[in-house]
Structure formats: C-alpha cells, structure tokens
Simulated scan of single mutants.
Amino acid sequence: MNEYELKVYEEVEEWKRKLTRRSGMMNRLSKKAQGKINEFIPEKVHEVMTESIKAMVKATLFGSQMTTNKDQAHGLTLAERDELAVKKMAAFQKTAMIEGAGTGAGGILLGLADFPLLLSIKMKFLFEAASIYGFNTKEYAERLFILHVFQLAFSSEEIRKSTLAEIENWETRKTVLVEMDWRKFQQEYRDYIDLAKMLQLVPGIGAFVGAYANNNLLKHLGDTAMNAYRLRLLQKSPDPI
C-alpha cells in the first residue's frame, strides 16, 4: 500500500468517527419534533408518500444506469479516482445550484418541483461515483448500495449509525440482500431536508435559499459517497511506508 492510500485510510476513519458522534441538542430536538408531526399524519398518507418516492427513486435509478459512462475510470489509481470524483462533485453542485435557484425563484409550484429534480441529480451523481471507484451498477447489490449511501447522507443519528455498519460490512451483507425499507428511506430523507425546502418556498429569498441548500446537500452527499467507496476499497489499514 502506498502513502496516499494510508492518508485516505486515516481520512475515512476520521469521517466514520464524525458520523457516529452524538448529534447536537438542536438536531435531537428537531428530530423529536418531526417524529411527533409524523405521528399525526394519517397512515394512508405515509403509504402514498412511500410508494411515490419508491417509484420516483426507481425511475431515477433506471435513468442513471442508462446514462453513466461505465469505463470512465479504467486503470486509474485511487488518487486519480479521488481527483475525478471531486471534479464530478463540483459539476453536480453547480447543476444543483442552478436548479435550486430556478425553482426557488418560481414560487410554490416550482418549489415543489425541486424535490424530484434534485433527487434525480443526487442519484445520477451516485452512479457516477460508483463508476469512478470501479463498482458495476448493473449488479443489484451495487444499486442497493447506492441507496444505502443516500440514506447514510440524509438520515438521523440512529439510522446513520446502523447504515454505516451495513456499509462497513457490505461484502458480507450483500450475500443476503433484502428489499430497501422504503418507509424509513423516505421519512428520513424528508425529515432531513424539510427546513431547507420549506424556506425555499418563501417569496423573495427562495432563489438564494434554493441555490445555497442544494449546493450544500450535493457537497454533503459527495463527501459521503467518496468516503463510502474509499472505505470499501480500503477495508483494512494499509501498511505504512
């Protein structure tokens, strides 16, 4: 193992420590409040939302699968893959900012349209990340891994910890794959982005909030994806030089 891989291993370990730290007081209170709100939502509404997001995600997975260049990182070193991933992330952040500013400036109707548009941008980036790090998204296990990376990025403390554990043991877990828990998937995602998306609907500041929020959400997803794939490539600590 080379010096760069040792550096990456240490970065991934620090990323894992940050993920498993206890959330701040405000985040815990916010999650508790959102949990109470979800309890008042009728079960039929939860079912409809779950099925809607499930269908939306599966459609974006199919579209991303068709449009991703599978050979873009053939023969690259880990350092070169990281460099390419950072460039891709920056490009997708710009796309998300433009989309967020446009829908944010358009009022409530366009603001609501931001949800599926941003979701498709995020999924497309995750397929690109998988390709860059050498994983074949034609395999069901790899598409399911993408959903776990998404959930890791946009979830509460408890779900984040359990999802990280699944990702760390993916090579074992993928031999006994189960269907995604779509109810948990959609609820965690909605709770994570609700505040930013609600502010995006406010006249006058919607465009700024939309661009800022989308940029940050893509940056967060990009960092999560990079480290998740690096983790799989470096399952054990490389020998120091």
Rank of each mutant, 00 (worst) to 15 (best):
K7V: 14
K18N: 12
L84Y: 10
T172K: 14
I241P: 14
Y229W: 08
G111W: 01
P240Q: 14
S23G: 07
A113E: 11
G111T: 00
M25I: 08
R183Q: 11
A130F: 01
L6H: 03
G100M: 07
A129Q: 10
N227C: 02
K54V: 08
L217I: 12
L126G: 00
Q187E: 15
N27L: 06
I53R: 13
F135N: 02
Q186E: 13
K184S: 13
I53Y: 11
M226L: 06
V209E: 04
K31A: 11
I98S: 08
L231D: 09
K58P: 02
V8E: 06
D82R: 15
Q72E: 14
G63M: 11
E166G: 00
L199H: 04
M1C: 11
D181P: 08
F40S: 13
S52Q: 05
F115I: 14
F115K: 10
T224F: 02
A85Y: 05
T95V: 05
L195H: 09
I159W: 06
A91D: 15
H46K: 14
K7A: 15
L144F: 03
N27I: 01
T175K: 10
D194L: 05
A101L: 04
R17K: 15
M123G: 04
I167V: 11
L118P: 00
F145A: 03
L177Y: 02
G106Y: 03
K197G: 00
M97W: 01
L201Q: 07
G206W: 00
G75C: 00
A73L: 04
G63Y: 09
A33E: 11
K184E: 13
A113Y: 06
M89C: 11
D71G: 08
D239R: 12
A55C: 03
A130Y: 02
A85P: 06
E168R: 14
F92H: 10
L152E: 06
K31E: 13
M226W: 01
G100L: 04
V12R: 07
P42R: 07
L221E: 04
K7Q: 15
K161W: 07
I132M: 14
Y212I: 09
I98F: 04
V202D: 09
I53A: 09
T137D: 09
V86C: 15
M97I: 04
